[in-house]
Simulated assay, not measured.
Amino acid sequence: MTDNPRAPRTATSRRNMLFGTAAAGAALLAAGCTSNENNDDSKESAGADVADSKPGKKVTIGFAGPQADHGWLNAITTQAKNRAEKYQDVTLEATEGSNDNATQVGQIETLINKKVDVLVVLPADGKALTQVGLKAMRAGIPVVNLDRIFSSQQAYRCWIGGDNYGMGLNAGHYIGEQLKDKKNAKVVELAGIDSLELTQERTKGFDDALKNYPNIKKVARQAAEFTVESGQKKMSQLLQAQSSFDALWNHDDDQGVGAERAIKQAGRDEFLMVGGAGSKRVMQAIKDDDSVVKATVLYPPTMAASAIDLARALGQGKGIAGMAEYEIPAHVTLYSAVVTKKNVDEYLPIGFT
């Protein structure tokens, strides 16, 4: 680390900044490699050296994600590739997505051997891929960890992802506000894969929000598997078990396709439905306002485009526009906005198919 945070770094100092010892590495990732020394007036007026759209130092970014077998995951890959194409100074080396941990590790090791400048990784399993993240960091290749987080902060330079707890919280508050004047209101929840921490966080956020509305009770919950088939099956079970309720929160718009089929087959329309993630199909249904679907809570796949922006800034040794710091942040958590008929036109362009 140098006294002047904008001074060029040697290969050795770059490696030390990225990895270092356990204590030093955590400190650098949390605070960035900056110094309060030599902050004269000229630097304060000039501000940090930030990445912008103008061509700069050429950067090769390696991108590795899971298999795009789900609408949201496909959108992640598309967002990353489209963003990289907008920059004349970025070359994207993208792997073929895989849900097999060993295969994905091998793909990332290939990118490490190619000596890419920066890695963007959405691991199929964050815990299982932590070691390869550490390997990249030790090799002096900064890692932007996308969404599913590695189990060690030393395995990445920056994490960017969605707010699963906030997603549930905002869904719960939206439903609560719609039902706050209804006596003995009932809600049901169609969750995702229960073994995933993200599903548990979404449910916790939802339950915590409902605590603010004593007139509302969650009467049933089913866990699906983020697929159309599971959504239809589990929604059918909820409908059979509950003769009536006032609101449904479905964690995932892809499994919501099946849920909506089950709802139509049952001829039920006495409740409002809130989706999750932000598919274009659901946004259009909200706009048309001709079904039970009234809102969806975003889990924006645009995070992959932002990950490319962060990786490019890292590769060029720059900060981010709009922030005074010389380094990019260690963590970026995206907001889970609620899309309704009032604001759907604003969000339709980022809806995924």
Score class of each variant (00 low, 15 high):
Ala23Cys: 13
Ala185Ser: 10
Asp69Gly: 05
Ala191Leu: 05
Pro55Met: 01
Gly278Asp: 03
Pro66Glu: 03
Gln232Trp: 01
Met283Ile: 08
Tyr347Val: 00
Ile308Ser: 13
Val187Ala: 00
Ala171His: 12
Ala102Val: 08
Gln154Glu: 14
Ala94Arg: 02
Leu248Phe: 11
Gln67Glu: 06
Leu169Gln: 08
Met323Val: 12
Leu334Cys: 12
Asn170Ser: 07
Asn212Asp: 11
Ala30Cys: 02
Ser230Trp: 07
Gln154Asp: 14
Gly97Trp: 04
Ala171Phe: 14
Thr91Asp: 07
Thr333Pro: 09
Gly168Lys: 10
Lys280Thr: 00
Thr91Glu: 09
Leu272Arg: 13
Leu348Cys: 00
Thr340Trp: 01
Leu298Tyr: 11
Ala11Val: 08
Ile308Cys: 02
Phe245Thr: 01
Val118Tyr: 09
Ile320Arg: 03
Pro349Leu: 00
Val282Asn: 00
Ser195Val: 13
Tyr347Lys: 02
Val105Cys: 12
Asn16Asp: 11
Ala330Leu: 06
Gly47Cys: 08
Lys43Tyr: 08
Ala241Val: 10
Val274Pro: 02
Arg281Leu: 00
Tyr347Cys: 01
Ala185Pro: 05
Lys341Gln: 12
Ala75Leu: 01
Lys81His: 10
Gly317Ser: 08
Ala321Trp: 04
Pro300Lys: 08
Lys217His: 10
Glu177Gln: 10
Asp254Tyr: 07
Gln131Tyr: 11
Lys233His: 13
Ala155Val: 06
Thr130Pro: 04
Leu196Tyr: 11
Asn164Thr: 03
Met283Ala: 05
Leu28Ile: 13
Val50Asn: 11
Val338Gly: 05
Thr91His: 06
Glu327Met: 14
Gly176Thr: 08
Ala139Tyr: 14
Tyr87Leu: 11
Asn212His: 13
Val257Thr: 08
Asn101Asp: 14
Thr199Leu: 02
Pro8Tyr: 01
Ala262His: 11
Tyr335Ile: 07
Ala191Glu: 03
Thr333Trp: 10
Met283Pro: 02
Ala23Ser: 14
Ser13Met: 11
Leu122Phe: 12
Arg138Trp: 03
Leu73Gln: 15
Ile320Trp: 05
Gln232Gly: 02
Asp181Met: 07
Thr78Arg: 02
Leu146Met: 12
Ala11Phe: 02
Val187Phe: 02
Ala64Ile: 08
Val188Asn: 05
Asn164Ala: 06
Leu238Ser: 05
Thr2Glu: 14
Pro329Ile: 12
Asp117Trp: 02
Gly106Val: 09
Ala185Tyr: 05
Lys135Ser: 04
Gln265Phe: 15
Glu189Ile: 13
Lys234Glu: 14
Ile160Arg: 12
Ser152Pro: 00
Ala330Cys: 06
Gly32Pro: 01
Asp100Val: 13
Cys158Ser: 11
Asp147Cys: 03
Gly256Ser: 04
Thr77Asn: 15
Phe352Arg: 01
Asp125Gln: 08
Cys33Leu: 06
Arg261Ala: 13
Ala324Val: 07
Ala155Pro: 07
Ala24Ser: 15
Ile160Ala: 09
Gln284Arg: 00
Asn4Leu: 06
Gly276Asp: 11
Ile350Lys: 03
Asp40Cys: 07
Val274Gln: 07
Asp125Ala: 15
Ala128Trp: 03
Gln200Ala: 13
Ser230Lys: 09
Asn184Tyr: 14
Arg15Thr: 15
